[in-house]
Design a protein around this nucleic acid. Sequence first.
RNA 1: GCUCACAUAGCUCAGGCGGUAGAGCACUUCCUUGGUAAGGAAGAGGUCAUCGGUUCAAAUCCGAUUGUGAGCACCA
Length: 649
Amino acid sequence: MLGYRQRNRVFQVRGHLAVRAEQHHSRRGLVSSCNRSRPLPLEHSGEIKPDDKLYQIRHSLAHVLAQAVLELREGATLGFGPPIQDGFYYDFVLPEPITESDFPELERRMRRIIKKNQRFYREELPKTEALARIDEMGEPYKREYAEELCAKNGLEALSFYRNGPFLDMCEGPHVESSKEIPRDAFKLRSVAGAYWRGDSRNKMMTRIYAWAFEDKATLDSHVEAYELAQARDHKKLGRELDIYVIDNEIGRGLPLWLPNGTVIRDELEKLARELEFKDGYQRVATPHLAKQELFYRTGHLPYYAEDMYPPLEVIEHTEHGDEVKESYVLKPMNCPHHHKIFASSLRSYRELPVRLAEYGHVYRFEDSGAVGGLLRVRGMCMNDAHIYCTEDQIGAEFRNVIQLYDHAYSILGLKDYYLRLSCWDPDDPLGKNKYVDEPEAWEKSQDALRAILKELELDYVEATGEAAFYGPKIDVQFPTVTGRYESLSTVQLDFAIPKRLDLKYVGSDGAEHVPYCIHRAPFSTHERFVAYLIEHFGGAFPTWLAPVQVQVLTVSEQFDEYAQKVVDVLRADFVRAELASANDTVAKKIRDGTTRKIPNLLVVGEREVASQEVTLRRYGVREQLTMSLESFKAKLLKTIQTRALEFMQ
RNA sequence: GCUCACAUAGCUCAGGCGGUAGAGCACUUCCUUGGUAAGGAAGAGGUCAUCGGUUCAAAUCCGAUUGUGAGCACCA
């Protein structure tokens, strides 16, 4: 599993939040070049470069695939076909669809092509000749791209690669001959739609993904690791472990949290409350609805309208019998509500920073194709807080928030993530509609975040066009079992909305000032965070998070009385302990407890009853420990209280 | 939203070239009181996602719809 994740990592550089002042680790794993920004697309991961043999093999295999597809679907036209992490893909417009049932035939043809020892010839043609050749080839998409290449980059010549009968406009490089391509180290993986040039206004092409490695053993181990990882999929484990269900009569993307899942939520909330209490947050609570008008004032509407559930129209009657219509919306975020709490009293600079925290429910009308499992839902509960502060306090508050992340991640043992500084895109076609139109404020706040990251010696990736409309943010990206990265935690700087809502405080100069706002969600939403934790732990939660912490099982029914006493003693201290059903054999009870991934199984029989002991069988551990009930309870409580990942001896 | 695929019992799946369904697990009852990953028996469970079409006959073929998955786009 670990191997898979390492191989499949998209970015070399991960964030490590080693910033706790009191325990100054010697820059564990920090990369000192803080401004090393990286482009985001998968194919530009930096792990594999054009000079690498594997890059060339993958790139050449893409051409071989295209050749095979053209054999199978005469009249197909070509899009892009780059090498990517773990393999390659190629995009086509096909006269007849290709499905995964065509893969065996395609792979056969690819092997046959490779066997022909086709040489890859590079040829450069001057611009006009090149365009003429592309027209001859009948490749409209290549033509479009070629024109753009020439126009944007001022190219005077374009390169082509030919292998066998296949000709493609391509930058290369490729292997010299197809005999350099191992015939047994690739595997077609999936077929999917993909927009030409990644733009949804363009035609949807057919993309064929494939895995490709230097040899069969690497491919096999990769595929095996991938399949193993699929066993940790939160959708699969969520059902097997009774964590949540999604019922279509409730609605798409609206999960129902079962008792087991609710325990996990409660424990996470408890942890968040403790950490936030220590950091001076105050808890607030707000309704799920608000008047639509509020979101016009904040600037969310109309820009954000299609991502919200449509408004509820309410008619109220005045005392004169007149009808007054009002529109309410389900809030897609908590900030306007919190802003109103900030505005509920006259604030002095002496109060700042004000930190308002809430696990708040929000509703977003996500596109149907985006919704899936717990990772992308339409109703979610967010570990939200808004920090209102002066400009001078921004640095310290960001540092506090990042320390809070670090603390939370270290408790959970999370290491496999990277930081992304999400900036605005001055060239965004939506331009002024999408982003707050204050270029200087953008530059200034982005510089401020860069400075903080640098000061904390955190490495990060910079992503243009990923900012919130009101300011830049630092997102923490975590991998899912499919190898994709999702934003989990986020901390955002907002220099716009407080002004729009007329938030203010009285400064030391006696004048009114607009506060800055920091939005942050270290534990993300319950939905996404629990999804990640299920996959991270493979469903085998540490004791403090486990829905059932201890299951007591007896060797035979005659010891049930003692077992029940063990359960009662533990439950008296709020341990989630339960008694296994009586009518099974020990072996069966062990199996059931193990299948449910219960962290601590206690076996009691004649010996334990006689000595008032318990025999502990930890999840995934062969060796058992027999100890007194009192001793076990003390160790267990310590394990839970310290939120230890392992049982505390 | 888009492309492709898929939809059979609570779960995992088999079957069905058109004649109204089957297994394992789970569940219920009974037997068994068993020291470490499945003790045994019986029973209950399904308009084969929904709607429409073709047909003497549809769970099977066709269409639409809904849902799910992979990917693309989106993602405060």
